[in-house]
Design a binder for these strands. Structure first.
Lengths: 216, 216
DNA sequence: TCAGCTTACGAGGATCGTAAACATC
DNA sequence: GATGTTTACGATCCTCGTAAGCTGA
């Protein structure tokens, strides 16, 4: 039994006119006619007295009106309840993600788990250099981003949670060029690794906007 | 929205097993799977957590169980209500009808009117000679019969209502053979017309029963 | 490997809309 | 004849079942 039949029935009951009821629910009048007779056959009672000039409710039809109304109201409530449970879990989450694979935790698995738990939320993932993504989070173009930055590189107006700490390693040829260099001093005074990141960030800095052209 | 989806949902919720639930409602397992995902898409929430080895209700699914049960119970009540309103007007009426057209009242129109007023009642019309039909009414093979009999020809154990009185007319060649005969005397002493009826009744008397043969 | 859910896809059935038939005012 | 419902019928959509695919124990 399809609930649409009750909806159609109520519409006819209210308008007492198949043609107008059909127009209201965006259906051909014949289709509505078929729906009503299907409902009548299903319930085993005649719901309307129809002459070619007037439509009136039978006793059974009169009895059905409040029952059908109640049933439809309840299904609406079920929908509302489900919506409420989906609750805030409806919408779109814009995520910035470093293209660099992070071996410390499985981001793909994480997203999959999230998706299972919150199927109502659409996930949009983009990637960009860390500095660009933090800027986009600041401007609202992204909801969150997973970036690779040192603590002091995170803009002050953004919140952040450290997910993993990766050692910064200097790799050189085995000619002993770094022999005797203090690692601490190397990290702070000679930004070898970071300079790469910075350069890449500048190079691909501006967000490219796609332009659409109106036809004609 | 089809109420069958809720029924299917409840079955899966109870068995926690698509295969068994499908068997219970006489559906292919894939069809049930499709129904559930249709319901989930319709309501915008995931109702079950499925791994390939276990099916468990989500929060939304848990909330839906009593709501769906309630909805189905209410539709059952609607059906019961409609059945009650159809009331006694449900069943089959076996009518015996003289093949002879009766110009006194329109039997076809009468049946049509009845059918409109009591659409829940199936009408089965058969015909046979009047005497056979009265016998069938007596034996319960017919619910009622419209026959052509004189008052004194109706079996004493049957009720009857005169619907029309038709004159019994003797038609002869115009040779004056009946000239001077008293009509009253003719009807009582010389059963011209009635003898035909009686002979026909004997000829087609026994009801033929169809025999069915068991296969093998 | 097995149990069990999902996906793919073709067949059959259901539903819709157009159009004709039919019935009252 | 106008208005309004039902009936006829073809096209489309939907739902089912078979079979293959996929996944976790």
């Amino acid at each position: 039994m399809d609930l649409r039949l009750f909806r159609s029935f109520l519409e006819v009951a209210e308008t007492r006119n198949f043609t107008r009821a059909a127009a209201r629910i965006h259906l051909a009048q014949s289709a509505l006619s078929q729906q009503i007779s299907l409902l009548e056959r299903d319930l085993g009672v005649r719901l309307f007295h129809r002459t070619s000039r007037s439509v009136t409710l039978t006793e059974a039809g009169t009895a059905l009106v409040p029952l059908a109304r109640d049933l439809l109201r309840r299904t609406e409530r079920i929908r509302a309840e489900m919506d409420a449970l989906a609750g805030l879990e409806r919408g779109t989450l814009l995520i910035g993600l470093l293209q660099t694979p992070t071996p410390v935790f499985d981001i793909v698995d994480l997203l999959g788990t999230f998706r299972d738990a919150h199927p109502g939320i659409e996930l949009h993932v983009t990637d960009a250099p860390s500095e660009v993504m933090t800027a986009r989070v600041a401007s609202g173009d992204l909801d969150l981003a997973i970036v690779g930055l040192a603590h002091d590189e995170v803009p002050a107006d953004l919140d952040y949670v450290p997910l993993a700490v990766e050692p910064l390693v200097a790799v050189t040829a085995a000619d002993g060029v770094l022999d005797g260099t203090d690692p601490e001093a190397l990290a702070t005074s000679r930004p070898l690794a970071r300079s790469c990141t910075s350069r890449r960030a500048r190079a691909s800095g501006g967000a490219s906007r796609r332009r659409s052209r109106a036809p004609g």
